[in-house]
């Protein structure tokens, strides 16, 4: 019957709308469900994933030594030309010349954080750090020198 169907339609519609309102009503009355992160305020407690790829860094040990041999594997592996290695030749005590890095240039502004350079590095000299607040006012500041001034290659790394 037409009238019965009509009333049924109205009731069904009303029921479906009320179930929807029940869900939002539940969240309105349950504030503990809120999942907002108060980002700049919670810096102290912020848990960042250890593996998060934020930028390429070169770890130096306490003697200001790193493990980069200047083999340019990372430079070749990089799809964007982010890394530029400038080599120099150190005169060793025994008079032999040895290749070493002069400057490890890293263009953060070109980097897509793909991690291929870290994969390619044979001596694990570079790694991805989980820092992420990179914004600066001048773009030039994003071009970084990764090896610290006066740093040397660690003994025994070939």
């Amino acid at each position: 019957m037409f009238l019965k169907e009509y009333i049924n339609d109205v009731l069904k519609a009303a029921k479906s709308l009320l179930t929807g309102m029940k869900v939002t009503g539940y969240y309105f009355t349950h504030r503990k469900e809120i999942i907002t992160e108060q980002y700049p305020d919670n810096r102290a407690t912020l848990q960042l994933a250890e593996r998060f790829r934020g930028e390429v860094v070169m770890p130096h040990d306490e003697n200001n030594q790193h493990a980069c041999t200047g083999c340019s594997a990372c430079e070749i592996a990089c799809p964007n030309g982010t890394i530029k290695i400038i080599n120099k030749f150190d005169i060793q005590p025994d008079g032999k010349k040895k290749k070493a890095i002069d400057t490890f240039v890293y263009h953060l502004e070109l980097c897509t954080m793909c991690g291929l350079c870290v994969e390619a590095c044979p001596t694990s000299a570079i790694k991805m750090a989980n820092t992420f607040e990179h914004s600066v006012f001048n773009r030039n500041q994003l071009t970084k020198r990764l090896n610290q001034p006066g740093s040397k290659i660690r003994e025994g790394v070939e």
Binding site: T24, Y27, F28, R31, E33, I34, I35, T36, Q38
Partner: peptide
Amino acid sequence: KVAAVMQIRL
């Protein structure tokens, strides 16, 4: 505010 709380935001 109402929208935010229903949308599990602040």
